[in-house]
Design a protein around this nucleic acid. Structure first.
Length: 607
DNA sequence: TATGAGACTTAGGAGATACGGT
DNA sequence: ACCGTATCTCCTAAGTCTCATA
């Protein structure tokens, strides 16, 4: 504990130093008191350069053991076979491994999709020997059932393991985590986020991904770049192997990286969110959002006036920023067509994604949004907009095809460039953070009262959290067992009601009796019955609250906003103010991630 | 000004684990 | 103690944004 407190103090100092050196681009001029610094230009520049190098340098020393590789492929037993055209075929090791990936997924919906099948089959054939390729020409003639069955049985065996066996397995895993799961950054032992190399398998994109089913190849040490300090113990590659490269770049935070073969993107091994490095970055993110709070009125006035600009580009910018601010849309970078699922954000919206209604649901100037956003999550919303926005949208859509871009004169680079001119460090995503945190604070203020019970307070918190999740369109699939568990809860409530009625009746009887008898014993009985009624009433209320909460949460995911958008200091301050234990709001992982906020925040904190 | 690589944050789902009721 | 559900953790895909280069 004491070490931890010490570290937090360090964090604070570090940040002050950061501000003092006006280091981080986004935090430059952050502390308004610094703006009255000597105006000596040379001195100023020197400080900036110094700051920049300080900012770019992410660590002084970094030592780690390198990533942990997945186990080697274990060949199928002799009695488990793949069949082609009804005949058992013994495959080469490489081809067999790829087949097991597919066979394991047989009862997943993925394998019924044409794109998935096509991609898998093409990549599988690549792994085959010439003879195999010659023989195996049609997926429809392939039979993976036996292999599938084998893996199902194996999974069952694993489940049926004795407690002792399970414990031993866990022990082994813990040992691995202990060895590979931590690194030494500037002398502090820090948890690594993902210390395992991603195992080979079939790529599972989200939504209608054109590359679904493609083979994700096994990563070898020869594919991996190691990043660590020069004078540290350099990680040792597995026996008989060597790293692609060992570098000592302290301007980046990653420990290892490799290029993934499906999309050609780079994958990284990085620190856990609980680390000081990530924590400080997170903190900084919220500080920028708070800075936007001070500037947002001006910025809003600005984009409203852009709506009447003579330049079409400015008008489009004005409307786009308005959407980003009002609706918490993402920036919407352009993406390479055919490489990923067709999803959009603000700047990449197409004409087909919005419908204008002069009047809808009794309101004027309505815009109906319907598009797929990040992760192919549908965004559907009907919003009334200002007359001028409405007219502009009409103008932007004139003489365009449905598949044409709505904002054809702008892109995210341009938009962020102008945002940065309004406020240093401002980009499109800051609006999401800002609006999310502002909403949480407002809702908490509105929904919480000191005289509420603990459960009621928590419900209020969840509702505030939910308002944010709805704003940010954070969705989840309804739990498979939702209806059933809801019904169960219903029944429990009905039962509780019955019990309560019963208890009330008994109380009445006791009271009547007491009026007649007036004895100690009868008085005690009344008291006892009163208590029982009280207890039952409380239990019923609790159940009802639980039901409301669950119903409202059916397709809303609260976690994403809690983890990425809500300034944790708001929650911590709220907990302190209303006497809610912080563990009721944040679980262990979350408390670790937000350690910086939990330690430094008092109940008066305001976003 | 466009393009693409690179680095980092944000995202939902799968599987593992914890928990509460019987 | 067991079982089914709720919650947590891990996983890795999918975004955002910056920077270098032409």
């Amino acid at each position: 504990m004491s070490r931890y407190v010490f570290r937090i103090v360090q964090v604070v100092n570090y940040s002050l130093k950061l501000n003092g050196h006006t280091s981080v681009i986004c935090l430059r001029n952050f502390d308004s008191s610094r703006q009255n610094l000597p105006k000596n230009a040379t001195k100023k520049r020197r400080r900036w350069e110094e700051g920049q190098s300080l900012d770019r340098q992410k660590w002084k020393t970094l030592e780690h053991k390198g990533p942990l590789f997945p186990p080697e492929y274990e060949p199928l037993p002799k009695n488990v076979s793949f069949y082609y055209n009804g005949k058992a075929v013994r495959l080469s090791l490489a081809a067999e491994e790829v087949v097991t990936f597919y066979a394991k997924m047989l009862d997943h919906e993925y394998t019924t999709k044409e794109t998935f099948q096509k991609n898998f089959f093409a990549d599988w054939r690549e792994e085959m020997t010439a003879e195999e390729r010659d023989l195996i020409r049609k997926l429809s003639k392939c039979d993976f059932q036996e292999i599938h069955k084998y893996f199902v049985e194996k999974a069952e065996e694993k489940k049926a393991m004795t407690k002792e066996e399970k414990r031993a397995l866990k022990e082994e895993a813990n040992k691995q985590t202990e060895e590979y799961g931590y690194c030494l950054l500037d002398g502090h032992r820090e948890k690594i986020g993902n210390f395992r190399v991603e195992p080979p398998g079939l790529f599972r994109g989200r939504g209608e991904h054109p590359k679904m089913g493609k083979l994700k190849k096994r990563i070898l040490p020869e594919d991996i770049t190691i990043n660590c300090s020069e004078d540290s113990k350099i990680p040792v590659a597995p026996k008989g192997h060597s790293w692609k490269k060992v570098q000592h770049d302290n301007t980046v935070t990653w420990l290892a990286s490799w290029v993934e073969n499906v999309q050609g993107s780079i994958k990284y091994i990085m620190l856990n969110p609980s680390s000081k490095l990530k924590g400080e970055k997170d903190w900084q993110k919220y500080e920028i959002a708070r800075k936007l709070k001070l500037k947002v009125d001006t910025i809003r006035r600005q984009y409203c006036s852009d709506w009447k600009s003579r330049e079409m580009k400015k008008r489009q910018r004005g409307v786009a920023v308005y959407f980003i601010d009002k609706l918490a849309l993402r920036a919407g970078n352009e993406k390479e067509e055919g490489e990923t699922a067709d999803t959009v954000g603000c700047c990449s919206l197409r004409v087909e994604h919005i419908t204008l209604h002069e009047e809808l649901d009794g309101q004027e100037n309505m815009v109906e949004f319907d598009f797929l956003g990040k992760d192919s999550i549908r965004y559907y919303n009907k919003v009334p907009v200002e007359k001028r926005v409405f007219k502009n949208l009409k103008l932007f859509m004139e003489n365009k095809n449905p598949e044409d871009e709505l904002f054809d004169r702008i892109n995210t680079t341009y938009l962020n460039k102008t945002l940065n001119e309004s406020m240093m460090g401002l980009t499109a995503k800051v609006f999401r953070t800002f609006n999310a945190s502002t909403t949480l604070q407002d809702q908490l203020n509105k929904l919480t009262h000191a005289d509420m019970s603990l459960e009621e307070k928590i419900l209020s918190y969840n509702r505030a959290n939910r308002a944010v999740a709805i704003l940010c369109n954070h969705q989840r699939a309804a739990p498979k067992t939702f209806e059933k568990s809801m019904q169960l809860l219903q029944e429990k409530i009905a039962q509780k009601r019955k019990q309560l009625d019963e208890a009330k009746k008994e109380l009445k009887t006791a009271q009547t009796q007491h009026k007649v008898e007036r004895t100690d014993k009868s008085r005690k009985l009344v008291e006892k019955k009163e208590k029982a009624v009280e207890r039952l009433e409380e239990q019923l209320k609790k159940l009802l609250l639980q039901m409301t909460d669950r119903e409202e949460n059916k397709v809303i995911a609260l976690g994403t906003s809690k983890l990425n958008y809500l300034d944790p200091r708001i929650s911590v301050a709220w907990c302190k103010k209303f006497g809610v234990p912080v563990e009721k709001i944040y679980n262990k992982t979350q408390r670790d991630k937000f350690a910086w906020a939990i330690d430094m925040t008092d109940e008066d904190y305001e976003f």
